[in-house]
Design a protein around this nucleic acid. Structure first.
Lengths: 154, 154
DNA sequence: TTGGCTGCAAACTATTTGCAGCGCT
DNA sequence: AGCGCTGCAAATAGTTTGCAGCCAA
């Protein structure tokens, strides 16, 4: 995944100005390795840089996405962003934790094994696995126990 | 895929009233075998049933989705709906035409071949292939030629 | 008859855009 | 100094909700 400096480098190289907000954005995406909603981004950045407006977040997310510094994915509950990782070399897919939003690479790609029927001309594909990662699995189990206890008592 | 009568049956069985609008919706989804946006649905239904409001479309799409009469998927360009097909028996995936939105089933599922790293607990997965189907492939090729001619002349 | 369904209008959420002033380069 | 970036406010797109009248059962 890209580091803070790499993200800033990408932006700078394309002629963008490096403002405090953008530095802060770069740092955020480099620190986290999961998906963030525009709201997550806004809330994080407000801490570091108060007086921030939502428009700036949207504008910068879009610019950074167009430059390839970050990647954008549509989920059922809206748009999310993460630091670029397709630049990391080979094509790959992700396992995504439903709790913490972190992602784990899957190097296996099903496309070569998939038959395209009726002369279907393949352009792109999406393969995503959702579930709970090692850490959140524990959390989820603990919560379930608590829920069971509550309903058992009541 | 479900037929008009099957869709109406599902709704009726769950205590919903069968109104003209709902009959029209059922017919639409039974006729098409691709994804439709709420706007597509609205435009089609206006022809058959004028005086229709957008709210009714949204309300009915939601109800039908909750009942399992139709299925909902999020794409980059928004929500789309199609007649239920997971009821068709075995688990499967889809190839989706970027032009006409029709879908073709893929019976191959990559999940059994995918290793879950680090004790990742898999809950669900998504595997979708996008491209152009037999018919739209021709259309796309024809358009490309036209575009090439235009740019070649100018 | 009557409670569910519809159209209308308004509210809401998420995102985009116009504009004037500030600040990176 | 100059132009890009930002905040503010307003516009826009997509979707949901409240309410009163209408209609399938």
């Amino acid at each position: 995944m890209l580091s803070t400096e790499q993200i800033i480098g990408v932006m700078s190289a394309q002629g963008l100005r490096i403002t405090d907000q953008r530095r802060s954005l770069a740092k955020l995406f480099a620190e986290r390795d999961g998906y963030l909603t525009p709201k997550d981004v806004y809330e994080y950045m407000c801490k570091e840089y108060s007086g921030l407006s939502f428009d700036t977040v949207y504008r910068n997310l879009r610019v950074m996405e167009e430059l390839g510094a970050i990647e954008q994915v549509v989920f059922e509950d809206g748009l999310k962003f993460r630091a670029g990782c397709s630049s990391e070399g080979h094509h790959h897919h992700h396992m995504i934790c439903l709790q913490c939003q972190k992602t784990y690479p899957i190097h296996f790609c099903p496309m070569p094994l998939t038959d395209a029927p009726e002369e279907f001309q393949v352009v792109k594909h999406k393969f995503e696995v959702f579930g709970y990662c090692k850490n959140c699995r524990k959390d989820a189990a603990a919560e379930k126990e608590q829920a069971a206890e509550r309903s058992g008592v009541n």
